[in-house]
Every structure is written in C-alpha cells, then in structure tokens.
Amino acid sequence: MNVFRLLGDVSHLVAIIILFLKIFRSKSCAGISGKSQVLFALVFTTRYLDLFTSFISIYNTVMKVVFLVLSYATVYLIYLRFRSSYDSESDTFRVEFLLVPVAGLSFLENYDFTPIEILWTFSIYLESVAILPQLFMITKTGEAESITTHYLFFLGLYRALYLANWVWRYHTEGFFDQIAVVSGVVQTIFYCDFFYLYVTKVLKGNSKLTLP
C-alpha cells in the first residue's frame, strides 16, 4: 500500500458516498445517469468475485464490501425508491455499445483465459467507460448540479491517483499491470474535459455547472 493508492481509494469512497447521500437526502436522482450506476455495480460485481476465495487484508475485504453495498444501494435508490425522479429521457446512452466491445476485448486481451480472470479483465475495461452515460447525460441536459460535479471530480481523481500509484509501484517493486494501467489512462482521459470545466466553473463558485 502507498499513499497514492490510499488517497485514491479514499477519493473513490468519498465519490460514492457523495452520490449516495445526494440522492438519499434530496430524495431525488435528477441529473444522475442510472445506466452509469448499473455499470459501476457490474464493475464491482465482476471484479470482487474473489471476495470469498482470496483474502488479501481486512482493509481490502472491508472496502470491497462497502463498494458493493453502496453501489447496489445507489442503483436501488435510482430505479426503485426514487424512480419518479429518474430522468430516463435524458439517460439514453446505448450501453450495449460499451458492453459488447468490452466483453469481446476481455476475451481477446487478458492475463489468463479463466472465468475469474476474464471477468476481472471485463471489470477493468468496463470501468474505463462506465462514466460515459453520465457524461453524455450532462452534455445532453447542458447542466449538472454542483454536488454531481463534486461526485465526478472525486471519481475522476481516484483513477488519476491510481496512475500515480502504478508509477510508484513500478519504481519501488517493479509491479506493472498493463491492462489496468492502459484502461486507467483511458478512463482518466475521459474526465479531462470535465476537470477543465470543474476547475474553471464550479470552483469559481457557480451554483451549478452549465455547459457552454
């Protein structure tokens, strides 16, 4: 464990908690892409299948359970509890255009042709594009509540910190996970445009992000 990975996991946890609390306390999921949240629940499900088979540390197990519970709870809030506030007309990204290529690639490019490893690879590739329905929804509505932009900021920051973690691990322990690194770079690049808007608009105190 190093400081970049720890900060990255904390940033990821903060993002997930911000989103969950935003929906739970405002009793509304307006402006939130349910599709992205379903994809994230799928990412955690296919990545953490080893939850019961391989024990790494208390921290690792606890964080996996927390991420799984909060992601499914968020999907539940969006599609069941507060479904009347779910803006399905704006959440129109065709997720099959993500799932099919990601599934195909995970069969082609992986470390080991076993179910667990292919599902892990699928989760890595899927995570790099899972935010696209949310970013697409924001460009379609042309705006996002500031709390939603804080969620996206911490979510984007988490994988950027993981990139630093992989540089650190490469130089200190020779660790290099090519599939995770390449996907992490792609994932972080998708946030660059948002990061620019976040810094230039939201941090200037605007009540919400309105796209030009």
Binding site: R5, K64, Y111, W120, F176
Partner: peptide
Amino acid sequence: ADESPAHDEL
C-alpha cells in the same frame, strides 16, 4: 498471456 499480477488492488 503475460504474467498475471496478483490483483491486490480494489
């Protein structure tokens, strides 16, 4: 397949 690094990250 490249060597499979232990998936010890979240």
